[in-house]
Design a protein around this nucleic acid. Structure first.
Lengths: 129, 129
DNA sequence: CGATTGGTTAGCCATGAAGCTAACTATACA
DNA sequence: TGTATAGTTAGCTTCATGGCTAACCAATCG
């Protein structure tokens, strides 16, 4: 019952913006100052800083200021947490698919057995593979 | 150079909402009607339908109506696409970490070699691990 | 010291997202 | 045929987001 997702909200929201995804991608390659990060974007600094702030409050990015330059780096935990979520969903999804496949196989076998018993009923299924 | 992300925007935005994540999780376990999906949520139907619509336009969910009931199911592609994004970032991140580690190792060796040459300079580094 | 650079704060605006109610459509059931 | 069920559409509020400008620190550098 524990709602383990209060941070996923913010992580996904942060990653929903292409600018912020680009920042994350850039930071994957190594830490950088705000100015360096902002450079490729045609955007006023304050606007850009908002993105940085969103990334920070989501936990995706850490930063600290030394002198007058703020250096940002990736905090892998949030990223990994989000990736985990996908993997969990995929696990459930795939488990279901396996069960479904097993079910289909069972049906198939039963049908074959039935067909063997009374061959009168010919191939009368529609597009079921 | 191809900007393969116009959909990631919508996928991540869709997943940023806990209601919609819950819907996705529910659909991982198998398809369901809108009514079934909406049942656990204390929310007016039209509001809930908006979430369904967001999930559909993001490509995460497919639905079709037969009779008066609309049945929803997960479309795994978008989910996998988003998961891919994480894996790509992690790959870059880890490659960098490896390079960084190699670099640190190199520094370490050089330091040891230097220390072996002139043992005068004792342990004079500050908290660098 | 004074100017420049790098970032920050404050405040404004437009848009969109998330919720609601009310009214409507269309299928299914009696 | 009439009524209940399952969604849908329309339209409204409220609040968050993403962008801007202008003014403001605070380190550096000449």
């Amino acid at each position: 019952m524990a709602n383990q997702s209060p941070c996923l909200d913010q992580v996904f929201a942060a990653l929903a913006d292409p600018t912020r995804r680009a920042i994350v991608m850039r930071l994957c390659a190594g830490e950088a100052s705000v100015g360096e990060l902002a450079d490729p974007f045609a955007m006023a600094l304050p606007s850009f800083m908002k993105h940085i702030h969103v990334l920070e409050t989501s936990g995706l990015v850490l930063s600290e200021k030394s002198g007058r330059v703020r250096t940002c780096r990736l905090s892998p935990d949030a990223l990994l947490g989000a990736e985990d979520w996908f993997q969990q969903q995929r696990a459930i999804w795939e488990a279901r698919l396996d069960r479904f496949e097993a079910y289909v196989m069972k049906l198939k076998k039963e049908k074959e057995r039935a067909a063997a018993k009374r061959p009168s009923r010919t191939t009368k299924r529609k597009g079921s593979e």
